[in-house]
Amino acid sequence: MQYRKLGKTNFNISEISLGTWQVGGKWGDPFSHKNADHILNAAVDAGINFIDTADVYGDGESEKAVGRLVRSRSEQIYVATKCGRRLQPHTNELYKPDTLRKFVDDSLRNMGLETLDLIQLHCPPTEVYYRPEIFELFDRLKDEGKIQNLGVSVEKVEEGLKAIEFPNVTTVQIIFNMFRQRPAELFFTEAHRRNVGIIVRVPLASGLLTGKFSTDTTFSADDHRNFNRQGAGFDKGETFSGVDYETGLSAVDELRTVFPEDTNLAPDALRWILTFDAVSCIIPGASKTSHLTSNLQAIDRPAPSPEQMAAVKTIYDERIKNPVHYLW
């Protein structure tokens, strides 16, 4: 495992880390603590030392599983969680310091921890980034010892650029992959200049970039890849990175010609992300240990050649860019 510095936190974290949206089971399935424990411990055994969760994953059950892991292991494990998405409706008006403070307390209780290594605002409405009182709250929470660092998870590049204007924002979690390349432009440059860590989520475009899906692939009714393609549940950019499913399949077919020796494209897609020095870590998810094993293969993959990098860019420009680039 290779490690990179997570911006101003000064944490040295595994460049392949773990996201826990579906760690207790597949999307739409009931949360399984047995499955979560198995995956989380396998991740730490492999050298992963950064785990990303959220209070809404499994309605708090994911946080409980992560906390149990941290308390049971002797290794240094950095924990990031998120707050805000429990608000119903999820609107700017409901973002209030007292409410967010309660969410932080709830997360600490769920995990059985005295302090959070990193708390992230969980894709708040764009208006929230223009409210200094929201960000000032986390300075007080840090003084109280409840958190060590503040980060944000964003949907849009513009939100990331606005967030890093606040000096207490140490990290930004953002979607970045072969089908979502806009962050590599201005945002990566500005984040690096301000020593802000970049946590890459949805690195495989909800599984599209594994190369395992086809027009015959079906998803359960409760799986966001079934119901959220047009944004019925939340921002549609979280599902297949906002790429039309059939368009994505065609682009993946082209990617197979760029990486012809690999039937599993996931390690290549992850290794491509790691060529960008501004990236601190990637947090692919796993609903079973075979997913984790696949993700970790990226560590041993050679970096894409200049010709492969250029080919990926061409596929993006010709097939993906026009529909998605300027939306997020």
Results as ranks from 00 to 15, higher is better:
residue 73 R to E: 03
residue 43 A to T: 01
residue 128 V to L: 03
residue 77 I to T: 00
residue 64 K to L: 02
residue 40 L to C: 02
residue 290 S to K: 10
residue 189 T to K: 15
residue 231 G to T: 01
residue 12 N to T: 07
residue 256 R to P: 03
residue 19 G to Y: 07
residue 175 I to W: 08
residue 76 Q to D: 09
residue 124 P to Y: 01
residue 104 V to C: 10
residue 125 P to E: 02
residue 72 S to Q: 12
residue 306 P to R: 02
residue 92 N to H: 13
residue 28 G to W: 04
residue 8 K to F: 01
residue 190 E to R: 14
residue 220 S to K: 15
residue 37 D to R: 12
residue 5 K to D: 03
residue 243 V to L: 00
residue 31 F to L: 11
residue 84 G to L: 05
residue 35 N to T: 12
residue 211 G to I: 06
residue 192 H to W: 13
residue 46 A to G: 01
residue 85 R to T: 00
residue 141 L to P: 02
residue 129 Y to L: 02
residue 110 N to C: 08
residue 19 G to C: 08
residue 52 D to W: 07
residue 121 L to Q: 07
residue 2 Q to N: 15
residue 240 F to H: 06
residue 35 N to H: 05
residue 162 K to T: 15
residue 266 A to H: 09
residue 214 S to Q: 11
residue 51 I to Q: 02
residue 276 F to S: 12
residue 25 G to Q: 06
residue 17 S to C: 05
residue 119 I to Y: 13
residue 5 K to P: 00
residue 147 I to D: 02
residue 141 L to D: 01
residue 183 P to Q: 04
residue 49 N to E: 06
residue 250 S to V: 01
residue 250 S to L: 13
residue 137 L to I: 00
residue 48 I to G: 00
residue 241 S to W: 03
residue 261 E to F: 14
residue 247 T to D: 06
residue 270 L to V: 02
residue 197 G to Y: 02
residue 161 L to K: 03
residue 3 Y to M: 06
residue 136 E to Y: 10
residue 57 Y to I: 11
residue 5 K to A: 06
residue 229 R to M: 07
residue 22 Q to I: 12
residue 269 A to F: 12
residue 218 T to N: 10
residue 127 E to C: 09
residue 311 A to N: 13
residue 242 G to L: 01
residue 326 Y to W: 12
residue 179 F to M: 10
residue 176 F to V: 09
residue 230 Q to F: 06
residue 56 V to A: 06
residue 48 I to T: 10
residue 323 P to Q: 05
residue 294 S to D: 05
residue 83 C to N: 08
residue 134 I to L: 05
residue 138 F to Q: 04
residue 300 D to K: 15
residue 201 R to W: 03
residue 152 V to S: 07
residue 134 I to W: 10
residue 277 D to M: 09
residue 194 R to Q: 10
residue 62 S to H: 01
residue 324 V to A: 04
residue 305 S to W: 07
